[in-house]
């Protein structure tokens, strides 16, 4: 599904990612853990195509296509979804309308016809109840005046509605209390399938108690410094990142 080879990325003159190699097969859930400033968010933004990040070496293939050559909307249409750490506010644009615009834009690029209002409403309604998203939230402007938990639930709703092949969840647990974390995790777990891959980026292990990964990678100073099964996350919970940081400093 996703193959990253020797990816080097700079922001301004500063190298942030310094040779990332990662391979995620269809249906797998990978977690990337790391301390603040290790390059976690940079990785998610580069995959989604945000401006301001310069790829200085390496490549990323999404289903065999050169991901980095594509515009953000092309990546989205191909099935790459980024759940933002800080979801953006769009004043005056209702949530419902935004979802509809996105779904139909993605469908159009796949040569599928637009959903009519009834089909679309049905499609969305099927996803909202599980995420405790009310109709009132759908009528509000995108993320405007939303609480932290509401914003994250809204991201998962968009993911559910857009049905991506690869979902990158960037610190989806940040700012959530335990109840909100449960709702969000259940929403994500419901979307796990043999055809869908996920890349879960997090600072803390607690999210991984709810969304159990197949593989865990540790990112420090722009490199993956350790990989393992879910037990690696538990080890990190006990010992922290100090070991990895020390290694780098030495």
């Amino acid at each position: 599904m996703l193959v990253i080879e020797n990816l080097h990325v700079s922001v301004g003159d500063k190298p942030v990612l310094r040779g990332i190699d990662l391979e995620i097969a269809a249906g797998e859930v990978h977690a990337i853990m790391g301390p603040n400033g290790s390059g976690k968010s940079t990785l998610s933004y580069v995959l989604a195509g945000r401006e301001g990040y310069e790829v200085t070496a390496g490549r990323a293939l999404f289903e065999g296509r050169d991901l980095l050559a594509q515009a953000p909307e092309e990546r989205a249409a191909d099935g790459l979804f980024l759940a933002f750490q800080y979801p953006v506010e769009l004043p005056g644009v209702t949530n419902m309308n935004f979802l509809k615009e996105s779904v139909n834009a993605v469908r159009a690029k796949r040569d599928e016809g637009p959903l009519d209002a009834m089909q679309f409403l049905k499609h969305v309604r099927a996803k909202t109840s599980q995420l405790a998203i009310t109709d009132e939230m759908l009528r509000r402007a995108v993320n405007v005046g939303f609480s932290g938990g509401e914003k994250k639930r809204n991201e998962v709703l968009q993911m559910a509605v857009l049905e991506p092949k690869l979902a990158v969840l960037d610190e989806t647990d940040s700012g959530l209390d335990i109840d909100a974390l449960k709702i969000v995790s259940e929403g994500v777990n419901a979307l796990r399938s043999p055809e869908r891959s996920m890349l879960v980026i997090t600072h803390y292990q607690r999210l991984l108690n709810h969304i159990v990964p197949d593989r865990v990678h540790v990112l420090a100073h722009g490199r993956i410094v350790d990989s393992g099964g879910r037990e690696l996350a538990e080890k990190l919970e006990a010992s922290g990142y100090a070991d990895y940081e020390a290694t780098e400093a030495a």
Partner: peptide
């Protein structure tokens, strides 16, 4: 830029 990128990540073109 954030708003544009957010929309494009959801599949909309710049003009859309």
């Amino acid at each position: 830029e954030d708003q544009l990128f957010y929309c494009r990540q959801r599949g909309l073109s710049d003009e859309e």
